[in-house]
């Protein structure tokens, strides 16, 4: 055990859950499938164009870099539905991808950073929504949104960029638990069983 206390217990629990998921025949079948896994992964990546594409347009409007002459609320409301459809597809395919390779993913430092960034992006989105609702009537048709809104839009783009890059790097094995790593990385990746991913 590399760390004591509650984080170790949490890591054990997460690994147990991953092992439980891994024990399903479906999980292994999916991972070893010729085409199913690549197709689901491709769907996951391509749906970025719907989800992140719409999000990007909304944030660009808030930063007055696109659709300056269109009310901000119109852009935000009209694009909300396609964005959420994209998000739903990404969440579903994302869960399936995790289900196919649960043990290695659970002990991946990138996956953990990605989850933290997702939570941060979610909180930012909620705050952003509230701020929009409170203030949008005062600046709706102005090209330039208030500073709080602009900061929210920039944070949103930053967090999602982070989610994309950490999502991609999950596939690299640079910092897998069986490698020699600095101690804090073992801690951050939550390595309980160093060889679990290789079994």
């Amino acid at each position: 055990m590399l760390t004591g206390g509650s984080s170790a217990i949490l890591n054990e629990l997460l690994l147990d859950l991953a092992r439980y998921l891994d024990s399903f025949e479906w999980s292994t079948a999916l991972h070893e499938s010729y085409y199913m896994y690549p197709w689901i992964e491709t769907t996951h990546v391509l749906t970025l164009m719907v989800f992140l594409g719409m999000l990007c347009i909304i944030d660009l409007r808030m930063l007055s870099l696109a659709f300056k002459d269109t009310p901000a609320s119109v852009i935000a409301e009209r694009l909300d539905k396609p964005m959420m459809i994209g998000f739903a597809v990404m969440v579903i395919t994302g869960f399936i991808l995790y289900f196919a390779i649960p043990v290695r993913t659970t002990q991946s430092i990138w996956f953990r950073i990605k989850v933290v960034l997702l939570i941060a992006a979610g909180i930012n989105a909620l705050l952003f929504r509230n701020r929009m609702r409170e203030s949008v009537h005062t600046w709706d048709t102005a090209a330039r949104a208030p500073k709080r809104i602009r900061v929210g839009a920039m944070l949103s783009l930053g967090f999602w960029a982070g989610v994309v890059v950490t999502g991609r790097t999950i596939a690299y094995d640079w910092y897998d638990c069986h490698k020699e790593l600095p101690n804090f990385m073992y801690w951050a990746a939550g390595c309980v069983d160093e060889l679990a991913a290789l079994q």
Partner: peptide, 16 residues
């Protein structure tokens, strides 16, 4: 990452 992000942007513009 830049490739994927600009793919999202291009895709978003095309779709919209």
């Amino acid at each position: 990452m830049f490739h994927l992000l600009s793919m999202s942007m291009l895709g978003g513009m095309v779709i919209l």
